[in-house]
Write a protein that binds this DNA or RNA. Structure first.
Lengths: 213, 213
DNA sequence: GGGTGTGAAGCCGTTCACAGCA
DNA sequence: TGCTGTGAACGGCTTCACACCC
């Protein structure tokens, strides 16, 4: 934790761990940088650079021990204790995500959902209760959650985000189609579905003829 | 279209357009680079650089004409004709996305869905029919779709992606939690939900005390 | 020989800084 | 005066290249 880890590196580490975990037990307990590189489609130098920050050391003859890598990456990516997350806006997308994340990573637990519409309040989604917005601050404090998934309509996203930050949330995964204006110490990760799809069609068109690296 | 446009620039252009469209009619028909910059939270130089590629010119006194910007960005981002998109894997996430994209951008139309499970085949989702996997190539050709949204489980993602490419798909928005190995002329945009959430909790923890830019 | 670990170089996107202009 | 348009400088991430090691 002495080195500062960039966003990009962290993304790749997370992915390495997932692929390595899948591989564990199926293939050799060791892996070379070029093999992992091929799996995630980056260069082997990139892989070795990323592994540097984990403090793992490989062996020229056998490569890296897969178990060591998984553990070392976990020490970086995971917190000491399981992280409680809340989800705000349990419409179609919200409940799909609830479903998606349910049990996916042992250290990431969605502990509560929130919504403003009465017919959703007090319902249980994947074993998780949905509360009304008025309970937001209280529940977030009770669960000591400091990360949130935001799947509310764009026109209320900023206001809800403000409430989240007031309640102690420090990181937001934002699916709402508007940029959030929040204090600099709150980390916001944006998933902009429309832009992503527009990118796909744009570059698909570009590469209709030409090769793209 | 003479200049080559980077991924990052395209993302921002897409976002600019969306915010400018929301603003149209509500505020002044002109906007300065620093105003747009504030909305999307980038620097004003960045905005001006991005606008350069659109060929739009601003006026030192009034700024840029909002309508012109929207149109110029559309000329870059949109194709001449509406783009047909298909969605493969209409589970919870798939149908939430179907719902999300339905009518969102006039130029992007999901024209068909595919799934392997019999109880979903021939059902209609948001006015869009779900076909069996055996019809994939035929339907994609009939609709002349060349972009696809992939929301199938990880263990079949590669195989389905191969089928998509064989059927003529050139761009994939991939929600499956595995990297796809495809020819270089196929553009793949990855939305890795697990990694994104891990990033949020990681940086939320980091910034618990310190200020992050 | 083939792989690791890493300083140095390269590349690309962002920001600076300023001339030009209304 | 204040903003635009843009060459030049900057900075961070990626790749190269090579010493070291099994």
């Amino acid at each position: 934790m002495t080195t500062t880890i960039s966003k990009r590196t962290l993304e790749r580490l997370s992915l390495y761990r997932r692929l390595l975990s899948d591989r564990l037990g199926k293939e050799s307990p060791f892996i070379f940088s070029h093999q992992l590189a091929k799996l995630v489609q980056v260069t082997s130098s990139q892989v070795r650079r990323d592994i540097m920050v984990t403090g793992c050391f490989g062996n020229p003859t056998r490569g890296y021990r897969v178990e060591d890598l998984i553990e070392a990456i976990g020490k970086i990516v995971d917190a000491e204790e399981p992280q409680n997350v809340v989800l705000v806006g349990i419409g179609k997308l919200g409940s799909a995500l609830m479903n998606h994340f349910h049990g996916r990573r042992p250290n990431l637990r969605i502990k509560a959902a929130f919504d403003s519409s009465p017919e959703r309040i007090n319902r249980i989604y994947q074993g998780v209760r949905c509360y009304g917005m008025q309970d937001l601050a209280q529940v977030i404090r009770d669960e000591s959650a400091y990360a949130a998934i935001l799947t509310v309509p764009g026109d209320v996203a900023q206001q809800v985000a403000n409430q989240l930050v007031m309640a102690g949330i420090r990181g937001i995964l934002n699916f709402a189609p508007v940029p959030l204006h929040l204090p600099g110490n709150v980390y916001v990760e944006v998933i902009d579905l429309t832009t992503s799809l527009e990118k796909v069609t744009f570059f698909a068109r570009q590469s209709a003829g030409a090769q793209v690296s």
